[in-house]
Nucleic acid binder design. Structure first.
Length: 224
DNA sequence: GTCCAGGGCCTAC
DNA sequence: GTAGGCCATGGA
C-alpha cells in the first residue's frame, strides 16, 4: 500500500472510531486563537476553565485583551498553567493584530500564508505548533499541524521517524495527503482524540493500547 | 503523594 | 546543536 493510501486509511479508521471531531472547540475565530495559546502544554480541560473565566469578565475577545493589562489577565487564566507567560503571549498576539492589521483577523489571514507564518513565528512564545493551529483552525489555511502525539503515534507504527523535526514531519503529511483544509482539520483532531486514549505504559506491546487495532498500516505490519 | 497534559524559551555545555 | 531547566494548575 502506498504511503498516501495508508495515511487516508488510518484517517478513515480513526474517523470511524471517534466520529467527526468538529474542531476547533470554540464559537469564534478569536476564541480559537485564544485557546491555541492557552492550550500550550496543558490539558484542554484546564483551558475550558480559563476561557469561561475570561468570558465571565467580558474578556473573551482580542479587542478586550488588547485593552487589558497582562497583570489583570493572568489571574483569570490561572487554570491554564504558566499563566503569567500566557497572559503576555495573548498581549503579544493582540499587539501584532492591532498594530499591523487594525485588529482584523480577516485582514491578517488575507496575507500569504508563508509570510504570515514567518511573521507569527517571530513573536515571542509562538512556536510552530501554535502558529499552525491558528492558521488552520482560525484562518482555515491548508497547514497540517504536528504535535507530540503525531510524532509518537506515526513513528511507533513505522510511517514517520522519531528523529524528524517539526518541518520534516509536517512535510511528510502535506506531501502525501491532498491539500484540503477540512481533512487537515479533522485529521489532527483525530490524532489528538487517539492520543488522549493512549495508555501511558511505555511497553510497545501493551495489549490495551487502542493503536494496535486502529493503525495496522505501518511498514511491515508493525503494530503499536 | 505522584504523574503528566493539544509548548516554547533560555542557558549551558 | 542540543539537552535540560523553567514556567507552575488540576485531575486521575
Amino acid at each position: 500500500m502506498k504511503t498516501a493510501e495508508r495515511l487516508l486509511k488510518i484517517y478513515s479508521r480513526l474517523h470511524s472510531r471517534f466520529g467527526h471531531q468538529r474542531w476547533w472547540p470554540g464559537e469564534t475565530d478569536e476564541e480559537v486563537v485564544i485557546g491555541a495559546i492557552l492550550t500550550q502544554n496543558v490539558a484542554w480541560k484546564n483551558v475550558v476553565t480559563a476561557l469561561a473565566r475570561l468570558k465571565e469578565n467580558n474578556l473573551l475577545s482580542l479587542n478586550a485583551i488588547f485593552k487589558t493589562e497582562a497583570a489583570a489577565l493572568a489571574p483569570l487564566i490561572r487554570s491554564s498553567r504558566f499563566f503569567n507567560q500566557k497572559a503576555e503571549k495573548l498581549k503579544t498576539f493582540c499587539r501584532l493584530l492591532f498594530n499591523d492589521y487594525h485588529g482584523s483577523l480577516e485582514a491578517m489571514f488575507a496575507q500569504p500564508v508563508p509570510s504570515l507564518r514567518k511573521q507569527m513565528l517571530g513573536l515571542k512564545g509562538f512556536g510552530e505548533e501554535t502558529v499552525d493551529s491558528i492558521l488552520l483552525y482560525a484562518g482555515r489555511k491548508p497547514v497540517f499541524v504536528i504535535d507530540a502525539y503525531t510524532k509518537r503515534i506515526f513513528s511507533r507504527i513505522g510511517l514517520a521517524d522519531e528523529d524528524w523535526n517539526y518541518q520534516a514531519c509536517q512535510r511528510f503529511f502535506m506531501d502525501h495527503l491532498p491539500e484540503n483544509v477540512e481533512l487537515y482539520n479533522d485529521y489532527h483532531a483525530q490524532i489528538v482524540a487517539l492520543g488522549n486514549t493512549l495508555c501511558r505504559k511505555k511497553q510497545p506491546e501493551c495489549p490495551s493500547c487502542p493503536v494496535r487495532r486502529l493503525c495496522r498500516f505501518g511498514r511491515g505490519q508493525k503494530e503499536v
